[in-house]
Amino acid sequence: MKTSFVRISVHEVLLGVLCLYLYGCSETFRNNPLRSVGEPKAVSITLFEGERHGVRVKIEAQDSLRTGSNGFDILLLDAQSNALLTNASAELAASLLEGDSLRIAPTVALVPQDGKLVGNLFLAKASAAWRLVMRWVHQGRADSVVVPIAVVPSWRCAPLQSHDARTYMVVFAEPKILQVGVQEFEWLILEAQHSREQGKVVTRYAPVVDFVVTFETLMPSMGHGSEGNRNPVHTREGRYRGRIGFNMRGDWRIDVFCFRNGVEVGRTFFFFIL
């Protein structure tokens, strides 16, 4: 039998294909708004921009300033040529004077990174009376700027309920933005050391380097924790690195237990919404 394929109208076939194509564009509901709930994205804030003795200075906080570890990006430029001052050395310091109480944050040496100087500064208390001091040395000449800053409270800085009558702080330093999944983290553990100087109670923060730290994750409303966790170990200057997993968005609590010589020194927790 002779067969003729051309009798099928091309238009009919195209119509069918078009129907299939249009159908492929039909509805879906995959963009659940809860996907984006959690910690807001970091928004950098310019704290200072000005010129000091031929050097243009720009100080940026990587995000709004909160209690805990805060990242800073510093630009030092030659005011004439706008060239980066790559051989300048710089450091950041901060202090908070409230009545007769003076808190002094640990000074941080800034390190060059991607054309900027960067560093993380620990700010212990929420207050609008902090003073940020940036000092630099360029071609043998020292200089500085002082910037008033306001610090808001954050879950990332947790005081340790200690058994040894000392005051410790556990700071969730990194990552700055937590996300679902397994990630490396860095905690900073500091001991608040008080002294009386010139009629004031001065508090300085010293790194704790001899803790053994364990932790447990928990979703309080769910009653379960997460997998992929690895207890942190000390790396340098009170910094402890470990691994933590979060298997969904929602409320999370991290219980932290600190030991010294096999004896629990204290415990604290972080509580936040991922």
Binding site: N32, L34, V180, M219, S221, M222, M248, R249, G250, D251
Partner: peptide, 16 residues
């Protein structure tokens, strides 16, 4: 996907 909403209003919604 799955949302989880506590009957208690002070608990943040969960999602996976």
């Amino acid at each position: 996907d799955m949302e989880m909403h506590s009957i208690f209003p002070d608990v943040a919604p969960m999602y996976l």
